[in-house]
Design a protein around this nucleic acid. Structure first.
Lengths: 339, 339
DNA sequence: TTGTATGCGTTATCAC
DNA sequence: GTGATAACGCATACAA
């Protein structure tokens, strides 16, 4: 076996044709006579020929590769989104080049530069909070790009949910049940549009009912199990007079529920918990949990479809906000914590 | 702004040097005089020059890209592993080309071929259960590769846990507490070495104590919330005389705990549950849960380090089985279900 | 230290 | 329908 992988020229030599013919036989089968095509395919098969994508990309000026930058991979719901993205791309012959930086470095232009240097035909980014430099680099490269799980960016195409409407679903549900005193454990809003919109949606939905968040039960923290645990411990410790607490995502909800377990406070008998349900696991462990289900995989799929359309030269309309759904797994009474 | 991105020649023209000089100034700074290097860098900056990785790869015969095939992305603990892999690779200048096929197609040679065609310097695969064709393709390409979360393959380098030892940790713990009647809800063993090893480890550890699994509480299913839920419902419905049930992973445990909640069976007062804890979320929601914590991210990191060493021409020793840890969050009494 | 020239493996544009 | 041949953009061996 040769030390170097077979090239087009090797196949050509074996088949007794020119390398151009081999190239066409493999990528434009209808431009070639049946007999020579058969010979070429046989030769390619025999040599275990695999095309060299770098050379092809150099000649064709496209890599059939799409880049994505998605931070906080291990402790988030983003993998579901990436799965949707990758599946959609793969079905169209594209491959995913994934960058999964640790939290803070996600907006480093260096990461984007590396991706562009590797050669990507398009880019998908998480969230709307990108640096101006990011956009200028992308625009300079004249490359299609899309922001996933984002909305309201005038600098880029966005695919996402109507987070405020989702928040309203939760609040209206709780209010309809008779809850008047509500708390919120949410993700950090300073650098996260999604968390911010959720928070605002809750505040607004409450305001429409003449309600407001209980100050002693309003905690902003990082997304995470421990953070949710600590936040709920603080709320319990403060004896906040609430009958329901909304958690910004599944991780916070899981931690919060764990803290209530630890404190011997039954859910929902003594306190109701609602959550924005990305991963479903919180609801699975606590069926009484009310949650808004966000179909995250659909973001990746929609983003993939959008980028592929752009690469085809189309200018597709952006999908409207993806649908969210309130999931109520058991009825929830109204009991005030510490009462 | 030009319609075509700046090339080495463009930078060279602007800096008044040859393209070879530009190439060296950027990748071998010490081979160039300070003054010209400064001129080159300024010119590159001004043109927003980004190297064309395809051309570079063609010339250097390496892409600085590593491929990974990881199925079942959205509903597994694999993202943590991929995060570890990507971080390790990125720190060394490598980029990750990720393929995340749906379950069944994971072993398709076509997926691997696509990856090789895009150009990867090395490949990381999930699990030891690969087709012979997969290995022959990889070997033919003379490319380093590694199996993640696997062991005991003579065809490839493996990085993983000692699943049987992990199982023994759980069983010994339960047995020491006095449990004699134990059940198991495990993942499908037919095409999953990890699930198989866990199951065998449990059987063997029980045997060493003169115990065996309770047949009415032994269920093999797919990993998933619903599957765990259904399995535990079946065990409860059968009134299996067990005092503890071990779940094969967090998803099964979450579903099983949910079923017990639904049935009004308190954990661990009426039944103890133990789990192989990949994601930690089950333990967070149910602190009484005993679990073996598997540091999955370390698999990705170790795999990344191994591949990079191989690419450097080293022949590093494979790491021993990665350490696992029994996590007991609360003491667990012995009560027999349905008694 | 720098310039020149060749090759990397494909695709695409021509002729034939 | 097929064969030459010229890009594609970069790295590098060799010359200067």
């Amino acid at each position: 076996m040769p030390v170097r992988p077979a090239s087009l020229a090797d196949v050509a030599a074996l088949a007794g044709v020119s390398s151009g013919t081999v190239s066409r036989a493999l990528s434009r089968p209808d431009m070639i006579s049946d007999t020579t095509r058969a010979r070429v395919l046989a030769a390619a098969e025999r040599l275990g020929y695999v095309a060299n994508g770098s050379a092809r990309a150099l000649a064709m000026r496209r890599t059939l590769t799409i880049g994505a930058i998605v931070p906080r991979f291990g402790t988030s719901s983003f993998p579901t989104m990436v799965q949707g993205l990758e599946s959609t791309l793969a079905a169209e012959g594209y491959t995913l080049l994934l960058s999964a930086p640790e939290h803070s470095s996600a907006r480093e232009p260096a990461i984007l530069r590396t991706l562009l240097e590797r050669g990507v035909d398009a880019v998908a980014l998480l969230g709307a909070e990108q640096s101006a430099q990011t956009f200028s680099i992308l625009n300079a490269h004249r490359i299609p790009f899309v922001l996933m799980w984002a909305r309201n960016s005038r600098e880029a195409d966005c695919i996402g949910f109507d987070e405020r409407a989702a928040a309203a679903l939760v609040i209206d549900h709780l209010a309809d049940l008779g809850h008047r005193d509500v708390g919120f454990i949410g993700g950090s809003t300073s650098d996260n549009e999604r968390a911010r919109e959720r928070f605002r949606g809750i505040v607004e939905a409450l305001a429409r009912r003449g309600m407001s968040l209980c100050p002693q039960a309003l905690i902003e923290t990082e997304y995470g199990f421990r953070e949710g645990f600590d936040a709920m411990q603080a709320i319990v410790g403060a004896r906040a007079p609430v009958s329901a607490v909304v958690c910004g995502n599944d991780y916070l909800a899981a931690g919060a529920l764990s803290a209530l377990d630890r404190a011997g406070i039954p859910v929902p008998q003594a306190l109701s918990i609602a959550s924005f349900n990305d991963n479903e696991f919180a609801a699975y462990l606590h069926p009484p949990l009310t949650s808004v289900h966000l179909p995250i995989g659909q973001i990746g799929e929609a983003a993939g479809r959008h980028l592929i359309a752009r690469l085809r030269g189309e200018r597709p309309a952006l999908p409207a906000a993806l649908p969210v759904e309130l999931v109520v797994r058991a009825s929830t009474g109204v009991a005030t914590l510490g009462a």
